[in-house]
Design a protein around this nucleic acid. Structure first.
Lengths: 216, 216
DNA sequence: TAATAAATTTAGACTTATCTAAATTTATTA
DNA sequence: TAATAAATTTAGATAAGTCTAAATTTATTA
């Protein structure tokens, strides 16, 4: 098994090297709240274990083995988030930190039973896809509200920013996963978006529109 | 917050210093699978934090603060065991190792919600009492089967030994928490016990009888 | 109660993961 | 393309938790 620190690095590398990208030392340091020199040390260690492809100065991505481990951690994280929201009635902005700890519980038998207990959910409370026990999942193809045309009607399916403040902001305005929204106007000056939801008018800034994901 | 190692020491000290006893360095080393010298180092650290009362060469017990922390860890351990057995359908001999990890999930809000979700259970799958959110619980007053007289009828309420082999042995013979047993005979030669359960005769050794706890 | 055994602590070393500061490599730009 | 800036790595140090071996204290027993 891998240490907690190793698992967190693999997860961070996974998130930073999606779509064939390469994660840099500094990006990892920022993501993991640590220093670049610490990252370098760990990258050597993970490279020795053949969990990442690392060329000094050139950044990293995951090997097949590393990716498998990373996806398993993400599976655990998202299933625990689902559990916390659906079974223990936490709000979607309250569960991230707890799931950060729970994702390191090692037993796969446990997580498979949890998955079954909850009926094999496909998406977590933030709309992110939950990998199945084989690591398979399909990211649904989403776009930000800012890319939607006026008069289109779409469904809220996810968020790009997962921060507590953003989630609380959305919650306060009733902008939740599954809600149907109709874009009624886009202000030319600042690109803020006017939309209708539950027969009420809601105005959101460009920044919010960029981070709120909806169906194609 | 305390580190994982510190929490495990506090828990071990708790278990070893029940009933006003004093835990020794060697006992702790055995319990924690480590060396006496490592224990000494940690005891100094915990004493500095005022979580234990430590006099060199004289052993330790917990301060009020230390005990509070230890009981909270035990509360978490037992609630997670209950969850694993009652909600995820694990067997009572499968859950200890998982709960050893889960007991270190820090959030008290989480454990309180879990407690509520399960209906505030009073005992874990092995019959051990679950402390409430204030750390309160009453250990029910049990005795081993070996202390029961012939012709008495009692209810299985707990185990003294929590090892997988022992639990599996009991499971195989149907000796589970809640079962009613009637002691029909005690063999004078080796103190093995003959009992009736579900209208079937079961014979258990003195050692088993010493580790199976029943109602007074 | 002196000698021996057992338990415990101390001293010094090791590993993991981190840090700061300096050195090196890569990227940018004048 | 040479100079400068930015990114990255190396060197050396630190803290937590552990270890072995030696020293010390406490307990046992002859």
């Amino acid at each position: 098994m891998n240490t907690l620190a190793e698992e967190n690095y693999l997860k961070a590398i996974y998130h930073l090297s999606l779509n064939g990208a390469i994660a840099s030392t500094n990006q990892l340091a920022a993501q993991l709240n640590t220093k670049a020199s610490s990252v370098t040390d760990m990258l050597k260690k993970l490279a020795d274990k053949e969990l990442i492809n690392y060329t000094p100065y050139q950044g990293v991505n995951l090997t097949a083995t590393g990716e498998k481990i990373a996806i398993n951690i993400i599976r655990k994280h998202r299933l625990w988030e689902y559990f916390l929201v659906e079974k223990l009635n936490f709000k979607w902005d309250e569960v991230h930190e707890m799931a950060e700890e729970m994702e390191h519980i090692s037993s796969n038998a446990l997580i498979d039973r949890l998955d079954k207990f909850m009926g094999y959910p496909k998406y977590d409370p933030h709309g992110d896809p939950i990998p199945d026990c084989n690591g398979l999942f399909k990211a649904h193809n989403l776009r930000p509200v800012s890319a939607v045309d006026v008069n289109e009607s779409v469904i809220i399916c996810g968020v790009r920013d997962h921060s507590t403040v953003f989630l609380q902001y959305l919650e306060k305005h009733g902008l939740m996963i599954g809600k149907n929204i109709a874009i009624t106007d886009i202000i030319e000056f600042d690109h803020s978006v006017i939309l209708m939801m539950d027969n009420k008018k809601v105005q959101i800034s460009r920044e919010v529109a960029n981070n709120l994901l909806v169906s194609i």
